[in-house]
Write a protein that binds this DNA or RNA. Structure first.
Lengths: 185, 185
DNA sequence: TTTTTTATACAGTTTTTACTGTACAAACTA
DNA sequence: TAGTTTGTACAGTAAAAACTGTATAAAAAA
């Protein structure tokens, strides 16, 4: 097998693995392939470049590059003399992971906490209703306990997101690069 | 509004919020609704119970309860004298989160590391090929550096999953329940 | 200004996924 | 043993999502 072919095959393996795992980011394999392809380009790409490389429509490239940008997996780039929009993959993958976490889970936590607080307030109110039957009150009380539990859970999740966002997670799980392992010991 | 109606409304709000956020678990809203409904039941449910409560086919209930079980969001339960399979939501939501993390990310990390190691080995091999052009060797070298970087990243992710699995994450982000906050201070 | 270039909105099509009903195998009952 | 009950495989259908091509608005060039 020829040299460039081997290089291409080694790249394809990585790209396909990314494509098959990008669902963890809520994205579709073709967006993963796009990301993977960009990863191995040493220059930022235009939408037309992507269309050519992937053989897909420019509209598709536009929408999926936007999805990738929303998750901060790719970012805009600039190159002198190029009028088209340019994109490159964000090069700090640790930060990308944290961004994913922030963007996806922060939003979810907030939505849940809003709903829980609202329902909790309603149930607390209901539990003081003098016209309520004994049976109802019992059910309400059980639900209040359940909601308090999940409220605590989502508050924990919120603090977890904080810990990622403010990089404290790296105290517990430090970044280590190969050289740390390889050097004499 | 009548008492039971109020209770139902408070529950529905939570259930719908879960349904709208369950995509973070790679599940579809109807599975989230199923989970949410089960959460407010104080008894384990059979597939037929779920069919009745949600107005969906038993086949659907079967497949989605399996998906929920695979992520350990629900578990089998037993009740004396009941022949049908019974299911209830796992009551440790912190553990459910950790399980999600383990199941989804561990697998992804492993797949990536396998691919990266294989491609790295091929490229290291290629980089010693005496017939390779200078230009090719340069590209290979760049890719080797890129793969080393993402290898480190996935190894970090692996350690992150470990930290969740062995509960060390709770050292950094402790569980706090309301009583910790409410008591005198 | 007009002309050209570029990104995206939108409508239509293809592909994929979710869901249903039937059929059947495994497990339980009698 | 035969007769029920229960869960799920499978094929078909309905619904949703991905993708394409055309049209257009915004921006840049002339």
């Amino acid at each position: 097998m020829e040299g460039y072919e081997k290089l291409e095959k080694a790249r394809e393996r990585i790209i396909e693995t990314i494509a098959q795992n990008i669902h963890l980011y809520g994205l579709v394999p073709s967006a993963g392939r796009q990301y993977g392809m960009m990863f191995f380009q040493n220059e930022p790409l235009t939408l037309d470049d992507m269309t050519e490389k992937l053989g897909m429509s420019k509209t598709s490239m536009s929408t999926s590059v936007r999805a990738l940008s929303d998750l901060k997996l790719v970012e805009r780039a600039w190159k002198k003399g190029v009028r088209k929009d340019l994109y490159k993959v964000s090069d700090d993958w640790y930060q990308s992971f944290i961004d994913l976490f922030s963007i996806k889970w922060r939003r979810s936590v907030t939505l849940h906490l809003v709903a829980i607080k609202k329902s909790l307030a309603e149930l607390e109110q209901l539990s003081t209703d003098p016209t309520a039957s004994e049976e109802l009150l019992e059910e309400v009380q059980i639900d209040i306990e359940k909601l308090k539990y999940i409220k605590n859970y989502y508050e924990w999740l919120e603090r977890l997101v904080d810990v990622f966002e403010d990089q404290k997670i790296f105290d517990l799980v430090p970044i280590m690069n190969d050289s740390d392992n390889n050097s004499k010991d």
